[in-house]
Amino acid sequence: MPVIELQDVSKLYGFGDATTIALDEVSLKIESGEFVAVMGPSGSGKSTLMNLLGLLDHPTHGSYKLGDRFVSRLRPNLRAKARRDTIGFVFQSFNLLPNMTVLENVALPLAYKGMTKTRRLKQAGHVLERVGLSDREYFYPYQLSGGQAQRAAIARALVNNPSIIIADEPTGNLDSAASRVVMEVLSDIHASGSTILMVTHNPELTRYASRVVFMRDGSIVTDEQSAIGELSETVRRRSYFVRHKTVEDDLAGVSALMGAVQDKDTQPKAVKKKRSSKAKSYKAREKRTKAK
């Protein structure tokens, strides 16, 4: 039985002439244990799709079945509980609460479940161990690096044992090294049986996915299985990905690839800084990409 089943789901913004079709009759089925990477240019509706799947937003049309329940018309109270119990959402900007420790942040969903303080802190501790942050339990979010903050956010998403983890550009604010650590964590979680849905701009990260979905203008344009560890077929075919894999790439990490591919408006600052040393060559590559 699929974890998620969308049938002709549309999302419109605005009225009349100003109507934007953010999602255009999207149908999507995600089976348990899949690691789905969602790619596509900025504005293609990826975030809109994630928000609908994460029950943060309502579709304008269409039906959404989460597990064995149709949830598109659920009352707010039940939606909140479904968000709490069956979905773990990871944001690009971490969204940790600044006035709580990492441990308390991770334990917060359990508090909303009514779990006692000792139990939830204990459980949160276990999850933090899973993401390798045991030594940061009593830190506040501002004391963490981006990668650590994102791992804490992943721990928070995991703490309720959700049936699916939805991550909207989880590495979008991270440099290459931090991205890699975060991806390894997600990969471990996937390996232990979780279902993961992740938006990314970085083709290289499709290596972690078992399935890659491309979106354009609110529709899914390609949807293909992809062996873990390999780039997906479409990523390879896309002409903007032209080079062979070299030792230098391995060393430079994924940031180089990100620089080559990303749209300007979603270019993370951290990456820009990192790039500066090699700026010339990447700029050149970017130009080549844009030309095509």
């Binding site: 943060l56 109270n77 909140a80 968000r83 709490r84 959402f89 969204n95 940790l96 917060l108 909303y112």
Partner: peptide, 16 residues
């Protein structure tokens, strides 16, 4: 407001 958004996204009900 942002905090409210975060809390809701991790499952806080309106009542909570």
């Amino acid at each position: 407001t942002h905090e409210i958004g975060i809390r809701k996204s991790i499952g806080a009900t309106n009542r909570q």
